[in-house]
Design a binder for these strands. Structure first.
Lengths: 246, 246
DNA sequence: TTTGTACAATTGTGATCACATTTTAAGCAG
DNA sequence: CTGCTTAAAATGTGATCACAATTGTACAAA
């Protein structure tokens, strides 16, 4: 944990042969996905470089990559900020999460082994204990590891990178959603998921995944949202269509 | 069109206030998506910089971004190449395309206007004339514009960037698939799509989209594939799961 | 207190250089 | 012609500098 005005950034352990740029990218990605950045927060190259003790070069490449993934936004003045989600966009992201994660789970179903199921049960136990301890970070990460482990069972899971991209885009709201979770948490949907896996039941799996997603963040669409407009949301716009008509 | 050993790269027109990096990114992305690069082809920073007449800096950022999107692959020796798709992976990408594009089309359905439908008909006419002229580039781009226009009808189409990411990943095979298209082309699926739009029929829309995708590239999975193994395909692997078990 | 202006600091971008590693080419022996 | 060694060229990465544009701040005028 590093102290800096407004930026809360962990230094991740180095992987051998890893470039500095890759390391910075992982650190920033981890921070965003676990909800450590606030919406509308500005990220500057030199500041991050100072915190992570590298030159500006690796940082700017990492920021550009995250911008491409929709995790960050470049404003018109070229400043890089954490995007603010408008409700309509968040709603679309959640619908897409339901679609993609159901798809990935059902695709992984044929590859689920008994060992993997017991492993998922372990992961779920850990997350439940994190929940009891009100360890928000543990809840967020535990939930991601659970889902990632499930979808990764498929040997060619091309869907997983896209799902993680959605997690990234919703990331800045994650801390808020987890803080509000106890109000909406009624049933352990992960158990439903595991049950569906045990019975090789694709329909039950799909509905359990959907319920898990909606109960964890779906309620955010109805209120609670920072409604600050973002001038540079990378939205596919009607202007594009109009320009084609001309 | 620029002459260079093995690299066929158009210079796109500049957009006002566009950074050099963004311009290079668009040019490379366009080239990949329209199938101008061969699988396994190496792309070097200095060579591209020379062709586009910019310094190395914008090029490396653009290449990094495309790597993040799965459009390019970094080999273990850090060289950047156009990835070679193994059949299993291509098959997964096609399934995901069907899923995502059906989803995007149905989501766009409520926003379809009469003008948009007539515009889609125009686009389809253009593509058909490109087909008669055996203009491969025109077929590829026309098909993408048709689909992009349809999905963009939704004002918050968060799905479109992901769909384009899939097009990017399949890009290197596009030229091959279009060249083989006449053998498999039997019916104008775009007309089916437009009909479904006119009747506000989501089920017909979904099946038309699916048929369109499968008939355009689906047959590639059965043969024709360069089966050269790629040592660094960014596959979510079982090793990850195993390492979690440990 | 509020408003306006000039100056200083900060920002992202692009270019260039140094360096370790890898690839290619050349040279030579068999 | 083949196989091996060695030198030269090329490559990606990281650091640093210059520059235009933006932002922040201090100070003066109302």
């Amino acid at each position: 944990m590093t102290a800096a005005p407004g930026i809360n950034l962990d230094k991740l352990g180095n992987i051998e042969n890893e470039t500095a740029q890759e390391w910075v990218y992982r650190a920033l990605r981890f921070a965003i996905m676990s909800g450590q950045f606030q919406p509308n927060q500005a990220l500057t190259i030199r500041q991050i470089a100072g915190i992570l003790n590298v030159s500006a070069m690796p940082v700017r490449e990492a920021l550009k990559r995250l911008t491409t993934e929709g995790a960050l936004t470049i404003k018109s003045n070229r400043r890089i900020i954490v995007p603010t989600l408008i409700p309509a966009r968040l709603s679309e992201l959640i619908e897409l999460r339901v679609e993609l994660e159901s798809f990935a789970a059902i695709r992984a179903l044929p590859y689920i082994s008994a060992e993997l199921i017991s492993h998922l049960e372990d992961l779920n136990d850990k997350q439940n204990s994190a929940f009891e301890k009100r360890d928000f970070q543990g809840i967020i990460l535990g939930n991601q590891i659970f889902h990632r482990t499930l979808y990764s069972a498929h040997p060619h899971a091309v869907t997983l990178p896209m799902i993680e991209q959605l997690w990234l885009q919703i990331g800045p709201l994650h801390r808020l959603s987890v803080a509000k979770l106890p109000e909406h948490y009624t049933h352990d949907r992960h158990c439903d998921i595991i049950d569906a896996l045990k019975h090789h039941n694709p329909f039950g799996l799909k509905s359990a995944i959907e319920a898990d997603i909606r109960e964890s963040i779906g309620f955010l669409t109805e209120s609670d949202l920072l409604t600050g407009q973002d001038e540079n949301l990378p939205l596919p716009n009607k202007d594009y269509v109009k320009s084609l008509k001309k």
